[in-house]
Write a protein that binds this DNA or RNA. Structure first.
Lengths: 208, 208
DNA sequence: GAAAGCATTGAACACTCGTTCAACTTCAAT
DNA sequence: ATTGAAGTTGAACGAGTGTTCAATGCTTTC
């Protein structure tokens, strides 16, 4: 698979084009705008081909979900070229970066959340991805502040993700950029706060 | 309009029943689950009656949007029986109250956001309601802390709303309740913080 | 009791939807 | 050159969609 010598340089890999078209339509018009015909049209492909690569419409949407989840996970991926502190700070700041704060991505995320809320099957995929993302944030925190218990890292990660989700959502509603910047600073405060071991923490002992 | 003597006590006001059915379906199955026939079935009413009370499917959805927006606005409504401090604190805590933290409301809000993102017409309604809500929060802050400039109140309101939206959204994904409580405490901190006049604030001068 | 107005019904229309499938093209392997 | 598998097409089917509308039920008013 992959011997297209001179295919005018753009007609390659129609399966990806179909998935990309589905993502585009979903972000622009919501799930009701994603019909097999519309996807085919957007991808410049015959209707039958969409069902050739994706058995169901469900499969197509699942593939879209997986794709976005994968992208989300990369936000908290390890980067050995940076110190733990820098890694964490970079990850926290990237959620308001130009790559992510585009209407396309935000809208896509929103529609996928709505979809997951309406459909049991998508919900499981989404919840699993959310957990992996949360774990990723917690791991970054743990690396940057090894004196914290894992439980407290998860707590901080949960608090950070609440704010991040809020930023993503509120960006779509047109809140000013200054508020986003303040919110990012807030996530950094949470992440780098000195250990205290709030309620169920055995990490407080270690500090003495 | 309104002379139903003994109508078995439940068949009254079919228009509201239709709207309620639409809200229910929207929260449970998303926009694709809201068909005129499904709404009619859910409301126990003939198909034609839905189009009798609501010209369009669009009108029906618009009515649903307005209804939820109205409910949101009441969260930040004035309550003369409380001191400004209590009013603000109560409003901030109510977003995690049992009435609101139900799947039905959260899911509804999510689907309406998604709808507004996909459709220009709904977007305007939603943006206007969002602005009114933000103004409401800012007004509560201003009442509780009259020494703040109106601009700084809006700033704080914006920051608070980011976290609130995050709480609502993250609740749907199943984050633990403890994180919600910490996030609420965070909104209270923001609201009651002593004046400092961060960047564009002329309120900082007043503190000396 | 007749007339009138609102409420309510379900059949009917034109349309879009997801899915299937037989036909056709492309192209590497023989 | 022939075969066979993979890729690609668009017509076709049945189910579901939003909307329209003539017909009916139910009250109130004259």
């Amino acid at each position: 698979m992959g011997t297209n010598t001179v295919n005018s340089g753009e007609q390659i890999d129609r399966q990806s084009r179909i998935l990309e078209a589905a993502l585009d339509l979903l972000s622009r018009h919501g799930i009701s705008g994603v019909s097999m015909r519309a996807v085919a049209r957007e991808a410049g492909v015959a209707l039958g081909l969409v069902n050739y690569y994706y058995d169901d419409k469900t499969s197509l949407i699942r593939a879209a979900l997986h794709r976005v989840d994968e992208q989300d996970l990369q936000l908290v991926a390890r980067d050995p070229s940076l110190t733990p502190d820098e890694q964490l700070r970079k990850a926290l700041r990237r959620v308001a970066g130009a790559e992510l704060l585009t209407t396309r991505y935000l809208s896509l995320r929103l529609h996928l959340w709505a979809l997951a809320q309406a459909d049991e099957g998508y919900a499981e995929i989404n919840a699993a991805a959310f957990d992996r993302y949360l774990d990723g944030v917690a791991a970054l925190v743990s690396n940057a502040k090894p004196e914290l218990s894992w439980e407290e890292c998860r707590e901080r990660a949960a608090d950070i993700v609440v704010i991040q989700n809020g930023m993503w959502l509120t960006s779509l509603l047109g809140v000013d950029n200054a508020s986003i910047q303040r919110s990012i600073a807030r996530t950094e405060e949470i992440a780098f706060l000195p250990s205290r071991g709030s309620s169920s923490g055995d990490a407080a002992l270690r500090e003495l």
